[in-house]
Amino acid sequence: MDTKEYIASGILELYVAGTLSELENLEVYLNAEKYPEIKKEIEAIEASVLSLTRTVSPGTIGFDDIRNRMDMEGFPLTEGTKNKVGWTAYLGWAVSLIFMAGLIWLYEQNNQLISDIEVVSLQNITLEQQIADSEISLAKKDELLATIRDKNITVVPLGGQTVSPTSYAKAYWNKHEKKVFIDAQGLPDPPDGFVYQVWSLKLNPLRPTSMGLLEDFVEDDNKVFALANPNESEAFGITLEPAGGSAAPNLEQLYTLGVATS
């Protein structure tokens, strides 16, 4: 298309005047979109028409009056930028809410895990304590076994007497180390305020020497008591005495008695 000829035809002046048909308007619009020089020409014509029409203006009442009219008709006025909340804003809020819920859930999960770890840690400590206790107990038992297996040990069984026929005990006597281990598992728990007392006996004539008390009898788990015995014992006896023990045995309360054979 010859744009110069098109411009020179004067159709663009009529376009700005607004006196063309709808079809002609569309044609000019499309040509203006296609050819920048046509668009530029239209803008120049419009500028001159604007200058022309401005010269005959009586002045205007102003936009404040328009604003008042819009206000009366109930139009909300735009303050600077438009405060339009689009779907993207709602989506944004939704996403952040989901994100927050996720964070809270993760936080709860984390707390649960921490508390689980604490519980397991406590269980571990308890188990370790039990293992340690067992090891100590085992060591004690090994020691005990080693003690009674010692070749210097003399085993003296103590049988039940009149007061308590079913009672029994054993004395493991290490003459060399001058020690006696009393295994008192076969004795009943002593009543409150009483205590078992172990005696080394010399026969012909009968002469008892206190070897000591079986203290804390009830609390003792294995009921094995180590006592010193520097005596040349011929027999061992166990009597029930008032708490703190007695200087001489109460033979009426003799629970067990055994003679050392060698």
């Binding site: 010269t55 203006s57 009586p58 002045g59 205007t60 006025l77």
Partner: peptide
């Protein structure tokens, strides 16, 4: 056209003198 009154005020300031002039003639 999106009912922005700020834009409308700009257009009013651009053309109101001219439009009033045409009406006046």
């Amino acid at each position: 056209q999106k009912k922005d009154t700020v834009a409308f005020e700009k257009l009013y300031n651009m053309y109101s003198e001219n439009i009033c002039g045409v009406i006046n003639t």
